[in-house]
Structure formats: structure tokens, C-alpha cells
Amino acid sequence: MSSSQLLDQLTDSQVKAKASRAAFGEFLQEFGAKNPRIVALDADLSKSTQTQHFAKKFPDRFFNMGIAEANMIGVAAGLARADFIPFAASFGCFLTGRFDQIRMSVSFTNANVRLIGTHAGVGIGEDGHSQMALEDLALMRVLPHMTVLQPADEADTKRLLEWSLSHKGPCYFRLTRQNLKAVKWSTESQKVKVGHWDFLHTEPNSIMLVNSGGLLESCIKVADQLRSEGHKVSIVNASWISPVAHENFSKIAELKPQLIVSVEDHYTVGGLASVIAENLIEKHAYFPLCKVGVRDFGASGSPQDNLKVYGLDPEGIYQQIKKCYKK
């Protein structure tokens, strides 16, 4: 990947890269001190999900439920019924694997529960498929009442979590194990607007990369490469998976992209790619869509190797775009 114009423009190397799970751990500790309604639950993964800091500081508001996620989700719903704001954390795959408990005890009652699913995607690396959330967005997105969020960096994670404190209803946060490069967010992007995506860089008739989650830096690198080859590019960040504002799609339609590229460390079915396709079609806006994501079960490997194997590193994303792109 050659020039790094957009990368310098849109990301901040002065700020230390941080995993969104770590940002969550810090948030929970900070806001736990301010808001006595916040309680946290974990299923024996508090060191990984980062609820451990809250647990140490507020032991009377922390419930380690053991390795029993179904019960944890129901107990969280009961705590919400008693007017608390429960943050129930585990790996995303184990949480959303208890789909019926989320469906009935959480979303159907509009319980004010925050489900925190960490360890998203093949990017977690060596642990392999069993620990990877790859279908969690698809599962959570179909549920009425459920807000589904996938932040792109530390600041994004913290502001969306803070927003959730003022929201009444269940939320699912999909967070990463690996560090995420800090984004230079515009003043506009720093204000949370429900369902709104961040149009970080736009050009009409461009190749438009839309990221959700931990692959934004890679998207920007790919955009720089495409630009160096004379292509026009746009970069959109989609932290909101549900609900999504219709303005996102009007704006995309206005920009008339030559190609839309959805980029996510999730199955290409049911996640970001589906959100884009469903909403644009509903607006009678038809553009070619290149779906970059996971198409098979995950496997062991270093995070870097995994992203490479599954075509989610800059080179992999670039090659898939080249395949999809028709002049």
C-alpha cells in the first residue's frame, strides 16, 4: 500500500490504539462511580470483557454469574425490572448464542439491558472458531427493540456507551479484542445521532468503502491505495447496525457510488452487507455491492494471519474490490 494521505487525515497516531473492550472497561468504571443505577454481570470472563475493574470498585453492584450465560441474561432482565441499568458481558458468541433468552426476557419486554459482546470476528486470532462472534449482528439485528452498535475506536465506544445510558431499551454492543487506531472524528460525528453513519470522506461517483467495527484503518489504507491509482473514493463508518437512519441511504444514493464495498469481520450474511442492500433497495437505489466479510467458519491463527486468510487485511480487501470493480 503506497501513499497514506487519507490515513494521516482521518486517523490520529498521537492517540494510543485501544481495543473497544478496553474502552468499555474504562467507561464502566468511570460511569459506575457517577451512576448508582449501573450494575454489571459477567459469566467468568471479567478479565477478558474488562468488567473486572468495575467488579473491584463496586463489588455490591457486580454479579459474577459463573459460566451460565442463559441465567445471566435473565437475571440482567430482572435487574432492569428493578430499575437498574445492567451491563451483561461475555464473548459475543456466547451471549448471542443464548438467543431465546435475549428474544424473550430482554427484547420482548424492552428490558433496559446492555449486552456487551466482546471478541468479535476472526480478528481475535488463536482461540479459533468457537470463541469468535461471527453471526451476532445478524441475530441481534432481527429483534425489535434491540439497538445494535459496533463502534470503530475508543472514543466512538465511549460516546455510544454514554448515549446508551439515556436510552430506554436493550442494546447490544459488539466489541473487539484487538486494538483499534484512533479516528479523528469531526465535531459532527462526536455528537451521537441515533442511526446515523459517519461520512468520513466523500466524493461523488467513487468507490465507497463502508466499515462497521474494527476494520476502519484497513479500509482507509485501501482507499489511499485506490486513490494513488486515480480512483475516487469515499469512506463511511457504520457504528449503527440497528436502527439505521434513512438519511444514510439517501446520502449514499446522492453520491452515486460506482461500487459500494461493505467491510466487516462478520459473516457477509445478515450484518452490514445486508443492512446496506436492504435499505438501498427499499429506496430504489441500485449500486453494485462488493461484500467483504467472512464466508466460512473461523479458525486458529494469529490475528494478522487470520485477517489475511479471510481476506480482511488491506491487501485482501483491495483484491476483492479489484474483482468486483467493473469500469
Binding site: A70, I73, V75, G78, M104, S105
Partner: peptide, 18 residues
């Protein structure tokens, strides 16, 4: 909201703890 069996018990526990 119950009917999917086995779930109300956990909600009741959460309520009691809260």
C-alpha cells in the same frame, strides 16, 4: 414475559437481587 420455559426463574432472581 414468559412462555418460553425456564426463563422466568432467572428474571425473578434478578428482581430479587435488585
Amino acid at each position: 414475559s414468559t412462555g418460553s420455559l425456564g426463563q422466568g426463574v432467572s428474571v425473578a432472581l434478578g428482581l430479587a437481587l435488585g
